[in-house]
């Protein structure tokens, strides 16, 4: 169990990449990229985790103590998710335009570059 979450993160990265490589549909490729990116969330949160420690948010009754999970990696994960969501939107927009212009969303059928 000591390293298990790290391996889950690596597994997500690789299975997502495999999805992109095997993709026959651009939308499927974009979703595969999101899966690969989910690996980074798992990795970041696993790095910051501490057993039996609460969230790094204090209150008027809960005084600051360092016995919490790591807030730095949580902040990184937060911005990671925001960026991932918008980049996914951008890629889906690209896929839509490709479908309109070429009439296909199969990456293997997109051969010629257009200038």
């Amino acid at each position: 169990m000591n390293y298990y979450p790290y391996f889950v993160a690596g597994w997500l990265l690789l299975i997502g990449s495999l999805g992109i490589v095997r993709s026959r549909n651009l939308v499927h490729g974009v979703v595969s990229l999101a899966v690969a990116q989910a690996g980074t969330y798992v990795l970041l949160l696993a790095v910051g985790y501490q057993r039996n420690a609460p969230a790094p948010v204090f209150g008027s009754t809960k005084k600051p103590s360092t016995n919490v999970v790591d807030p730095v990696v949580q902040a990184l994960t937060l911005t990671d998710i925001v960026v991932s969501a918008t980049v996914t939107a951008l890629l889906l927009a690209l896929a839509m335009q490709i479908a309109k212009r070429h009439g296909t969303v199969d990456p293997d059928e997109l051969r010629a570059l257009e200038g």
């Binding site: 390293y3 057993r51 790094p56 790591d70």
Partner: peptide, 19 residues
Amino acid sequence: ALGMPKFGSSNHPYRDRSV
């Protein structure tokens, strides 16, 4: 990963500083 600190350990130097 095998060279990383063990999952769930209490050693988080950045956590201490940022808190």
